[in-house]
Simulated scan of single mutants.
Amino acid sequence: MIFVVIISAVLIVGSIAYIVHLFHRDQEIRSKGRDIRALVEDVRYISSNDGGSANIKYRLSWHEDGVVKQVEGSDTISAFCSSKVQKGCEIDIKYLDDDHILFVFDK
Results as ranks from 00 to 15, higher is better:
residue 1 M to H: 11
residue 5 V to P: 01
residue 8 S to G: 01
residue 9 A to S: 09
residue 10 V to A: 06
residue 10 V to T: 03
residue 12 I to K: 06
residue 12 I to W: 12
residue 14 G to N: 10
residue 15 S to Y: 09
residue 15 S to R: 14
residue 16 I to Q: 08
residue 17 A to F: 04
residue 18 Y to P: 07
residue 18 Y to V: 11
residue 19 I to R: 14
residue 19 I to V: 15
residue 20 V to E: 11
residue 20 V to H: 11
residue 21 H to T: 15
residue 23 F to V: 10
residue 25 R to A: 09
residue 25 R to L: 11
residue 26 D to P: 01
residue 27 Q to W: 03
residue 28 E to Q: 15
residue 28 E to N: 15
residue 30 R to E: 01
residue 31 S to F: 05
residue 31 S to Y: 13
residue 32 K to V: 02
residue 35 D to C: 01
residue 35 D to P: 03
residue 35 D to I: 03
residue 37 R to P: 00
residue 38 A to N: 08
residue 40 V to H: 06
residue 40 V to Y: 00
residue 42 D to R: 15
residue 42 D to Q: 15
residue 42 D to G: 12
residue 43 V to I: 12
residue 44 R to N: 14
residue 44 R to E: 13
residue 45 Y to E: 11
residue 46 I to K: 11
residue 46 I to P: 09
residue 46 I to M: 08
residue 47 S to W: 12
residue 47 S to R: 14
residue 49 N to H: 14
residue 50 D to H: 06
residue 50 D to N: 14
residue 50 D to K: 10
residue 51 G to L: 10
residue 51 G to T: 05
residue 51 G to M: 06
residue 52 G to S: 10
residue 52 G to D: 05
residue 53 S to V: 13
residue 53 S to N: 13
residue 54 A to G: 08
residue 55 N to W: 13
residue 57 K to Y: 13
residue 60 L to A: 09
residue 60 L to M: 01
residue 61 S to H: 02
residue 62 W to N: 10
residue 62 W to G: 04
residue 63 H to S: 12
residue 63 H to E: 14
residue 64 E to R: 06
residue 64 E to A: 05
residue 64 E to P: 00
residue 66 G to V: 03
residue 67 V to P: 00
residue 67 V to A: 05
residue 68 V to Q: 07
residue 69 K to I: 07
residue 69 K to C: 00
residue 70 Q to D: 03
residue 70 Q to W: 02
residue 73 G to S: 10
residue 73 G to D: 09
residue 73 G to I: 00
residue 74 S to W: 09
residue 74 S to N: 15
residue 76 T to L: 13
residue 76 T to S: 11
residue 78 S to Y: 07
residue 79 A to G: 12
residue 80 F to P: 03
residue 80 F to E: 11
residue 82 S to H: 04
residue 83 S to T: 07
residue 83 S to D: 09
residue 84 K to N: 03
residue 85 V to P: 06
residue 86 Q to V: 11
residue 86 Q to E: 14
residue 86 Q to S: 07
residue 87 K to P: 02
residue 88 G to E: 04
residue 88 G to K: 10
residue 89 C to F: 07
residue 89 C to I: 03
residue 90 E to M: 00
residue 91 I to R: 05
residue 91 I to L: 00
residue 93 I to S: 00
residue 93 I to G: 05
residue 94 K to D: 02
residue 94 K to T: 05
residue 95 Y to S: 10
residue 98 D to R: 06
residue 98 D to C: 01
residue 101 I to C: 02
residue 101 I to V: 11
residue 103 F to L: 04
residue 103 F to C: 06
residue 103 F to Q: 05
residue 104 V to Y: 10
residue 105 F to Y: 09
